[in-house]
Design a protein around this nucleic acid. Structure first.
Lengths: 262, 262
DNA sequence: GCCATTGTTCCAATATTTGGAACTTGATTT
DNA sequence: AAATCAAGTTCCAAATATTGGAACAATGGC
C-alpha cells in the first residue's frame, strides 16, 4: 500500500501516480495530484495524458481524474484465471456449506495478506467487498498461518521488519509473543485471529503452501464473535486445516508434473 | 479487449504486454510473450523486469509470468470508491429483493459495456464472476439501453463502427433493425435482451445517464429463460426503469452543486 | 559431450522524458 | 468591462531511458 520512496523508472512513476489516484478518497484535480506526487507540472501532465489514453484513468468534463475501467477489466481477467483461486474454490464452498459463515482465501505479498477470494455467509449483504484488499500479516488469521509455513530464515527477515501497530486490544504488539504463537500454529496446522484486527470479528485459519514455499497463504472462516463462540471456531479448525492441506496438495500436483501451470 | 494496433509510447507498450499476460489462458514463458508481442528480446526483457518490480506481474521459480496481485489491489480501490457504483448499490439491492434474480450494473466504454457491479440471485453460486468483464453493446440489455440515451450524433458514430458479430440465433446482425429497437427503447425507457448474447439467458434493462451524457450505462435484471418468462420480465420493466432513473437523478445531484464529486 | 532452446546481459544509436517557464483559459472580484 | 487570480496546458533544450541487435549464459534433450 505504501509506495516505497523512489519509484523506479518511467513505468514506476506512472504506476505511482495511478496508485495515488486509485487510493484517493474522491476524484482528484490536476493540482491535487501535482501536490501529492511532487512531480513537475509538465511531466505530470504528460503522464496523466498517457494514463488516460491507456484507459487506466478517466477524466470527466469537470477535469477530475478517477480510476479507469481498464483497470477493472485487467484485474477481472487476472482474477478469473488465477490458478490458486481456481484450485481453492471448491474447498471454500465446502467450508461455507459446513459452517454457514464467510470464508476467505488470501496470499502473502511482502508483509501483507491480499485477499483473493471470498464466499459469503447467508445473506449476500455485500459480495466482493474484500477481494483485492491487503491487510497486515501479524494480526490476521491468514497472515499468521502463512508465516507459520515460511522457511525459518524468510520468516525471520519478514518478522524483523514488521511495525506492530495496534488495531484492537488484542493486537500482538510484542514480537516475542507473536513468534511464540506462530510456532504453536506450525505445530497445530491452524490458528486463530482473536479480534486482533477488528473488534468483534474473529476467525480460524489454516495455511496453504506450495512445495517450495514460493507461494504462501491460507483459508479462513470468519464470524462476528457475538454470534459464534471461540469453542465453535475451535471445532471447525480441523476442517479448515484439511481444506488448506487439500489446496496445498492440489497446488503441488499442478506444479510438479510439467513445467507449465496450464 | 482488442488492442488497437499501435500502442502509443513506453507506457502503452508496457500496458499492452501486461494485458497480453492477463488475457492469456495460463502463465506464459518469456518466449511465448516474445512471439505474441513482437517486441525485440532485449526490450521485452527489460519491460517485464519493470512490470515485475512494480508488482503488476509475478514471476515464479519456473520463470512463468502471471498477473500480479498489485493489479487486484489497485482495482479493488478503484471499485470500492467508484461513485456511480456507490450510488447505484442500494437500488441494485432493491431490485434483487423485488425479483430474486441477478441484478447487474454496467457502464459504456467505447463500444463495450463493462460490468461494474452485480447482486446475485438466491444461491450465491459464484460471486464477482462478471465484474470488470466487457461485453458488446449491441447484444446486451444494458448496452442497448445505454445507446438509447446517447446524443444522436455520438450514437451514430458508435453504431457505424460496430461489427455485428452473431452470438446466438437472436443476435441483431442488421443495423437498421438495431437502430429501430434503440429508438423504441428511447420511447419506453427500458429494453430487453432476448437471448441475444447467450442462449437461454434474457434480461430487462434500463438506462442510467449523467446530465451531460458523459456517463452512460444501465441496470438490468437477468434470468434464465426457462425459469422466468418474458411476460414476467415485462412486468419488472417499470421497476427497473425507475431504478435507473433514481440512479441518474442521484448522479445529477452529486455532479451539479459543487465542482467536486467528493 | 554436443546441439537446441530458452533466458539474460551489454552497449552505441535513438527516442522519450524531464522540468522550468511562458502561455491559455475561465471564473471571480473590483 | 477590466483586472486579478487560480487552474490547466503547451513548449523546448538538456538529461535520461529505451531500443534492438548481437553476444553470452543456462538449461535440458539426445
Amino acid at each position: 500500500m505504501v509506495d516505497d520512496g523512489a519509484a523506479t523508472g518511467t513505468l514506476g512513476k506512472a504506476i505511482a501516480t495511478l496508485s495515488l489516484v486509485c487510493e484517493a478518497e474522491a476524484p482528484l484535480r490536476f493540482t491535487d495530484i501535482l501536490e501529492r506526487s511532487g512531480q513537475p507540472r509538465g511531466t505530470l501532465h504528460r503522464q496523466l495524458t498517457h494514463l488516460v489514453a491507456e484507459g487506466l484513468l478517466d477524466i470527466g468534463r469537470d477535469q477530475l481524474y478517477a480510476p479507469g475501467l481498464r483497470l477493472l477489466s485487467l484485474a477481472a481477467s487476472a482474477w478469473s484465471r488465477n490458478e490458486m483461486r481456481r484450485l481453492a474454490e471448491p474447498h471454500l464452498q465446502a467450508l461455507n456449506a459446513l459452517t454457514g459463515e464467510t470464508v476467505h482465501l488470501g496470499v502473502l505479498r511482502g508483509a501483507e495478506i491480499v485477499y483473493l477470494d471470498k464466499v459469503e455467509g447467508r445473506q449476500a449483504i455485500r459480495m466482493y467487498s474484500q477481494i483485492g484488499r491487503a491487510s497486515p500479516v501479524y494480526c490476521t488469521g491468514i497472515g499468521k498461518v502463512a508465516l507459520s509455513v515460511l522457511a525459518a530464515q524468510a520468516r525471520a527477515v519478514l518478522l524483523e521488519r514488521l511495525d506492530l501497530r495496534r488495531f484492537t486490544q488484542n493486537t500482538h504488539t510484542d514480537l516475542a509473543a507473536l513468534v511464540r504463537e506462530i510456532e504453536e500454529i506450525a505445530q497445530n496446522g491452524y490458528g486463530f485471529d482473536r479480534e486482533e484486527h477488528e473488534d468483534g470479528i474473529h476467525c480460524v485459519a489454516a495455511p496453504i503452501v506450495s512445495p517450495d514455499a514460493s507461494l504462501a497463504g491460507g483459508v479462513s472462516v470468519t464470524a462476528p464473535s457475538f454470534r459464534v463462540a471461540m469453542a465453535q471456531m475451535a471445532d471447525w479448525a480441523p476442517a479448515v486445516r484439511d481444506a488448506g492441506r487439500a489446496v496445498s496438495r492440489d497446488i503441488a500436483v499442478r506444479m510438479s508434473p510439467r513445467p507449465a501451470w496450464g
